[in-house]
């Protein structure tokens, strides 16, 4: 009897003797009519998805295992895993990864910090709707356009930002995108400008879902506003931040538009993240087989990192989701 007290309480109520129980389930509950027609309803969508994503994927693997010939009439040569083994000795490949991680880490940390800050400031303010509308504008812009816009803003002859930085004495000479350190900062700033609003928007949606009662309970417990944010609001935001981080890091791993426009990977490969290198290999040197191998490693790591991120955030996510409903 004592064992019972943990799960069903109060103890006295569960201690009644002689409770009747039925220990088998009648079969009628197991015989749900099979709903085969659902499969037919799903089939068109599955086929379409297979055509647009599975087919290219299979081709990617095919290409990565061949020396792809571009000249008409020539058939591709079987290369085995040569394309992959060659990557190990490719210094540009390794440097591409390092640059990519640096770029993505910089973008993410600045965007998350700023985005959460903006969301907290905007939350429940009177101008919330207006500011959301304004913030959405950069997001609506094609990345190529954002790239061009910032290239002009950084321009050494007529760029506003260039002028501003020079006037403030921060920039000594030369140009922004021509300097190794400044170029990285420049492309990160473009990404931050365009995508912080997305993070702010997702966080704002999350903030609306933070249970008011928990915040109030914490206030009564003795928390000031800052402690309240870190100990109650932030843990409740984890699922939303996970979505934001996942979206942004995957974008960082595949978007090359802005960088291609602004620096093309330069100066001296300072902004040559792996996807730009992949672009060079495939579409400048036309080594499609090697390019496919690089693309495959990129895909693999994106998936692995995605899974790892989900794992990190998983525990609090689950628990918050289920407990909020009661």
């Amino acid at each position: 009897m004592a064992v019972n007290t943990i799960d069903s309480e109060p103890p006295e109520l569960s201690a009644y003797r002689g409770v009747r129980r039925i220990d088998h389930t009648p079969h009628i509950f197991n015989n749900q009519p099979a709903r085969y027609y659902l499969m037919w309803l799903l089939l068109p969508a599955i086929l379409l998805l297979a055509a647009i994503s599975l087919y290219p994927f299979v081709w990617l693997i095919y290409m990565s295992l061949h020396e792809v010939q571009l000249a008409p009439g020539k058939s591709d040569l079987w290369a085995g895993i040569d394309n992959f083994t060659r990557l190990f000795s490719d210094k540009s490949f390794a440097r591409g990864w390092v640059t990519l991680f640096k770029y993505s880490a910089l973008c993410l940390s600045v965007e998350i910090t700023l985005g959460v800050l903006v969301a907290v400031i905007l939350n429940n303010s009177r101008l919330e709707k207006l500011f959301i509308t304004i913030f959405l504008m950069p997001m609506m812009m094609a990345p190529v356009v954002a790239g061009f816009l910032y290239m002009f803003l950084y321009n050494g002859t007529f760029g506003w930002y260039f002028w501003l930085l020079r006037s403030l004495g921060v920039l000594d000479g030369g140009s922004i995108l021509g300097n190794k350190t400044w170029a990285m900062a420049g492309v990160v700033a473009t990404d931050v400008w365009q995508w912080t609003p997305l993070i702010a928007l997702i966080t704002l949606a999350g903030l609306k879902r933070v249970p008011q009662e928990q915040l109030e309970a914490n206030m009564v417990d003795g928390a000031g506003p800052l402690r309240n944010f870190f100990s109650v609001a932030l843990p409740n935001l984890y699922p939303f931040l996970l979505i934001a981080i996942l979206l942004r890091f995957m974008d960082n791993f595949r978007f090359i538009d802005t960088i291609l426009i602004m620096t093309g990977g330069g100066p001296a490969n300072a902004t040559k993240i792996l996807p730009t290198y992949l672009f060079d290999v495939s579409f400048k040197f036309f080594e499609l087989g090697r390019g496919a191998a690089i693309a495959f490693t990129l895909l693999l790591l994106t998936i692995l990192l995605g899974l790892a991120l989900t794992k990190i955030f998983e525990d609090p996510t689950r628990k918050i989701k289920t407990s909020g409903t009661e």
């Binding site: 009662e213 928990q214 914490n218 009564v220 909020g324």
Partner: peptide
């Protein structure tokens, strides 16, 4: 006086436990 300085304890209708 803000709630944190009132030296009160409150039990809420939906319990308001911290899920994490």
């Amino acid at each position: 006086v803000p709630p944190k300085d009132r030296d009160i304890a409150m039990v809420f209708e939906n319990y308001a436990l911290y899920p994490h």
